Computed example of a mutant assay.
Amino acid sequence: MIDRPLLLKFLHRSYQELYPETGFDHLRTTLNHYFTVDTPLWWVRTETEQVVGCLWLGNSVDQISGDRHSHIFLLYVMPEYRRQGLGSALMATAERYAKTKGDRQITLQVFTNNQTAQSFYQSLTYQPHAILMRKILP
Score class of each variant (00 low, 15 high):
54 C>I: 06
46 T>C: 01
91 M>D: 09
11 L>G: 01
89 A>W: 12
89 A>S: 12
40 P>D: 05
95 E>F: 04
89 A>M: 07
124 L>H: 13
105 Q>N: 10
39 T>F: 02
128 P>I: 01
1 M>R: 11
124 L>Q: 03
54 C>P: 02
44 V>D: 03
56 W>R: 04
33 H>K: 10
60 S>C: 09
125 T>Q: 10
13 R>E: 14
131 I>L: 11
130 A>L: 14
93 T>E: 03
112 T>W: 09
96 R>M: 13
75 L>W: 03
79 P>Q: 07
107 T>M: 10
50 Q>E: 14
64 I>H: 08
102 G>Y: 06
111 F>E: 14
126 Y>C: 02
52 V>T: 14
60 S>M: 11
87 G>L: 00
31 L>A: 05
40 P>C: 10
119 S>Q: 15
106 I>K: 02
84 Q>S: 05
98 A>G: 07
122 Q>F: 06
49 E>S: 02
18 L>W: 12
21 E>M: 09
71 H>F: 14
120 F>R: 04
102 G>N: 07
17 E>T: 08
103 D>P: 05
77 V>S: 03
108 L>K: 06
62 D>N: 11
120 F>K: 00
67 D>K: 09
29 T>D: 15
129 H>D: 12
8 L>G: 11
1 M>F: 09
79 P>I: 07
111 F>A: 01
138 P>F: 11
70 S>R: 07
58 G>F: 05
95 E>I: 10
92 A>L: 14
35 F>R: 00
7 L>Y: 00
95 E>A: 11
92 A>G: 08
74 L>N: 02
12 H>G: 07
68 R>Q: 08
97 Y>C: 12
95 E>W: 01
91 M>G: 03
42 W>M: 03
94 A>K: 05
85 G>F: 01
42 W>N: 00
91 M>N: 03
20 P>W: 05
105 Q>P: 05
19 Y>A: 08
34 Y>N: 13
105 Q>V: 08
86 L>S: 02
46 T>N: 01
53 G>R: 08
18 L>K: 09
28 R>E: 14
78 M>L: 15
84 Q>D: 08
115 Q>L: 12
132 L>W: 15
136 I>K: 15
25 D>T: 12
108 L>G: 01
72 I>R: 06
92 A>P: 06
75 L>V: 04
41 L>Y: 04
78 M>N: 15
106 I>R: 06
57 L>C: 05
34 Y>K: 15
63 Q>W: 13
94 A>D: 02
38 D>F: 03
1 M>H: 14
107 T>P: 10
99 K>L: 10
110 V>H: 02
94 A>S: 00
12 H>I: 12
70 S>M: 15
76 Y>W: 04
105 Q>M: 12
76 Y>M: 00
26 H>Y: 14
63 Q>I: 14
89 A>H: 07
75 L>I: 06
92 A>C: 13
71 H>Y: 15
105 Q>K: 12
81 Y>L: 09
93 T>C: 05
8 L>I: 10
128 P>A: 07
6 L>I: 07
24 F>N: 01
16 Q>Y: 04
82 R>T: 08
50 Q>F: 13
137 L>Y: 06
100 T>A: 09
37 V>C: 11
114 N>M: 00
